[in-house]
Design a protein around this nucleic acid. Structure first.
Lengths: 213, 213
DNA sequence: ACTTTTGAATAAAGTACAGTATTCTAATAT
DNA sequence: ATATTAGAATACTGTACTTTATTCAAAAGT
């Protein structure tokens, strides 16, 4: 699928090459000088400094440099470049503005890159799609996507992803007087007591919940 | 693979300049073979097909091609390439596995790229940081980040970002019998009736809520 | 027989170059 | 005076070419 909805790069169509044969034109003019009166050659477009194509008129509005890239990634890279690279999108805030009516800038907090914001440890991060509503009071709903970081230590009170009896669950981890429990946040569910620590494998700590409205 | 099976004639042009002194000296020494016996040159490393550096031994393990890139993005691109390009992280699911104990693969749903998932229209998307708890029952908490898409039509029932009297708010949009209202989802707040449509500017429709646990 | 040395073969990498595209102005035409 | 045109200047672009790096096996050494 090609989600390139916004083409910010103006692609210029290659026109045919009628205009660019300066050399041959000059040559023919020089050659024809013998047959044509010497005054014939047009004298338009005088020689002068400052003529020529201005810089920054290229596809990218700036200088370019050839770089070698693995062939398998070239398409993806071109896409990446065409969409302006990593796209930190603007971040606004609902905070009460100083005066009003308030221009957009009064609300502008800066810009935000989702990957930077949500994925602090790319090699240790994965996602989990939620099923069930056992953590509804923690704001975790069915079909939400959880951002999970394996590199964060699973401490008491953290919301974790754990495999219990081969079943993947999201619960809040409780360590209390030597006992380990997995606490749901929904009155209709009961806490799970972990009698044998070996029967539970903690996959990681939930850092964010992504909910679709 | 390589359409040109015929080996091109390897012509080496002596273009080096810095070494020209030494080279020419050596050359002349070598060339003036009168001094050196013709049998002298070592015969090791015999000529044979199949010798040479194997393909795929380069930095990327595959063929490369020079591509022109805007200079301002080269560093970023090299980073992008070095990290393996866009990194769709694994997505798991809590769904009940067929058997157990269940290996991780039983839960693997695929992979997910956050930007693809959350930002459908990059040019029309921005983020809003939430303040206040007027939408708490919609699962929107203080300091959550909202993903907002300007290109989605603000219909009745959608959660929207609107500027009312210069104040940015998130509410559910109600159109009812010709009246427009902004509905909070928290009993402690009152609906806002929009008497003058001109006093409200709808910025966009909320598509996702990102919550930090 | 085994190890070490050596140069050819070949791929990788970077860059220079030739060809192309574009703009500006003087010369010409209206 | 105004509009049009042609040509020079110069930036953009892709790729061919040079240079560098690496591997392999034959030859030489032990």
């Amino acid at each position: 699928m090609k989600p390139s909805s916004s083409p910010p790069i103006p692609l210029k169509l290659a026109t045919s090459d009628a205009t660019s044969d300066a050399t041959s034109a000059t040559k023919s003019a020089t050659k024809s000088a013998g047959t044509t009166p010497p005054s014939a050659p047009s004298k338009r477009g005088g020689a002068r400094p400052g003529a020529g194509r201005p810089a920054g008129q290229g596809r990218y509005g700036e200088a370019t440099k050839p770089v070698r890239l693995p062939v398998s990634m070239i398409d993806e890279i071109m896409d990446y470049v065409a969409t302006g690279g990593r796209q930190p999108l603007p971040l606004f805030s609902c905070a009460v503005a100083a005066g009003f009516p308030s221009p957009a800038d009064d609300h502008l907090e800066g810009s935000l890159d989702l990957n930077d914001y949500l994925v602090k440890h790319p090699a240790a991060t994965f996602f989990v799609r939620v099923s069930g509503d056992s953590m509804i009071n923690a704001g975790i709903h069915e079909d939400d996507i959880l951002v999970v970081d394996r590199s964060i230590e699973a401490r008491h009170g953290k919301i974790i992803i754990a495999a219990v009896d081969g079943q993947l669950t999201v619960k809040r981890l409780h360590h209390k007087s030597g006992k380990t429990m997995l606490m749901p946040e929904n009155d209709r569910y009961e806490p799970i007591t972990i009698s044998d620590e070996a029967s539970m494998v903690i996959w990681g700590v939930v850092t964010n919940v992504i909910h679709s409205v």
